[in-house]
Simulated assay, not measured.
Amino acid sequence: MTPLVWERPEPSTRSALSPLNRDRIVRAAIALADADGLRAVSLRKVAAALDAGPMRLYRYVDTKEELLDLMVDAVYGEVDLPAAGGDWRAGVRSLAHGIREAALRHEWFADLLGGRPQVGPAALAHLEATLAALRCAPGIGEDPAALMRALQAVNGYVLGAVRHEVVELRTERESGLTDRQWQETAGPYLMRLFEAGRYPTLARVVADGPHDDPAGMFDAGLTVLLAGLAA
């Protein structure tokens, strides 16, 4: 069985007009994805961006899936890890906001979260830091089942909220309508429904609910989740 990319040594550098290594390959792939989404990423396109032949890249990565794994781990590496032994809520909050901010810098990152666990070194360091923080929450301690339930709750919230925000950004960009412009378009229709007495709970939320910025909404939801874990 072929070792995972994390266990294969970097090929030796050869003298060439365009010297390669995995870091250069990954950075070029990330630049393509940041500009045009994951559809722009292929070994051929990355090779062209590096002024190298596609076959040279196969010395460093075997498949596009390996390249995507390396890209994801590189973005995980951008997230600062909290110092050990600090307040557990602050630690979880810092890690969650770090993932959100990374996904806003690299929207494609949200598309690759979830599914099978990421096992790159930066992703594992992020997971270890999250578990270490949650382990300090009341009632969790040395109970592995409670720790995994807490982890699933946090990851589920962060992944859902981040994907929702990224989809909204894409929709706004592709439609050409800002959120305010869309609200102005849909507002009269919704008001007619509300005035007719339909959807009374929704009407109250729209009229009286908080209208936080996206970062504030993300943090408010995280606060509710952490309060639930603490209880």
Rank of each mutant, 00 (worst) to 15 (best):
L169Y: 13
L131H: 13
G114D: 11
G98H: 07
L147D: 09
N155H: 13
A186P: 04
L127N: 09
G114R: 11
A96E: 01
R163Q: 12
R170D: 10
R116P: 02
G141F: 03
A145W: 12
E128V: 13
L151D: 04
R105Q: 13
L151N: 08
A161N: 02
A125T: 03
E174P: 02
R163S: 06
V162Q: 05
Q118R: 12
E184M: 14
Q152S: 15
T130H: 02
Y157R: 03
T178A: 05
V167W: 01
R173H: 04
E172V: 07
L177A: 12
G160I: 02
V167A: 12
Q118N: 12
P121E: 14
L104A: 12
T130C: 04
A146R: 06
I140G: 00
V166P: 10
H164T: 06
D143R: 14
H126A: 09
A103P: 11
G176Q: 06
A186V: 13
L169G: 13
E101S: 13
V119C: 01
L112D: 14
G115N: 06
H164Y: 08
L113F: 04
H106Q: 04
G187K: 09
V158K: 00
V166T: 09
A146H: 02
V167T: 07
H106I: 02
G160M: 03
Q118D: 13
G98A: 09
A186N: 11
A103C: 12
A145Q: 13
G120T: 01
A123G: 02
M148W: 11
P188V: 07
V162P: 03
Q152G: 15
